[in-house]
Simulated scan of single mutants.
Amino acid sequence: MRLWHEKLIILLPRNQLLGQHRECCALRGKGWGKKHSTVDYVFTYSPYLLYKYHQLVMNEMQSRGYNVASDWQN
C-alpha cells in the first residue's frame, strides 16, 4: 500500500480510505522502522508527521460516519 497525498484523502473511495487507516496503524504500531519497499520514505521523517497524516485520515473517516478506535487518537 502507498500513502496518498493529503489533499486526496477527502476524494478516496471507502476501501482506499480504510486502507490508508490500516496502513497508518501498521506503521505507527510495530511496523515503525521496518523495511517496506513502498513506504520506506516515511521513516526519513518525524513520526509526528505520520501521526498528523493519520489524524487527517481518521477525521475523514469520522466525517463519513465510520467509527475510529479512540486508542489511535493519542
Rank of each mutant, 00 (worst) to 15 (best):
I10N: 15
I10W: 11
I10P: 08
L12C: 13
L12M: 14
R14K: 14
N15W: 04
Q16F: 04
L17H: 12
L17M: 10
L17W: 06
G19I: 05
Q20W: 05
H21K: 09
H21T: 05
R22L: 13
E23S: 12
C25R: 09
C25E: 12
L27S: 00
R28Q: 06
G29K: 03
K30G: 14
K30I: 10
K30W: 12
G31E: 00
G31W: 01
G33S: 08
K35C: 08
H36Q: 08
T38M: 15
T38G: 13
D40R: 14
D40W: 13
Y41A: 10
Y41D: 09
V42D: 01
V42W: 03
F43K: 10
Y45V: 02
Y45W: 06
S46Q: 10
S46H: 10
P47V: 07
P47A: 03
Y48H: 06
L49C: 12
L49G: 10
L49M: 13
L50A: 08
L50W: 05
Y51V: 04
Y51I: 04
K52T: 11
H54N: 02
H54I: 00
H54R: 00
H54L: 01
Q55H: 08
Q55M: 08
L56D: 07
L56E: 12
M58V: 09
N59C: 13
N59T: 14
E60K: 10
M61R: 04
M61A: 03
M61N: 05
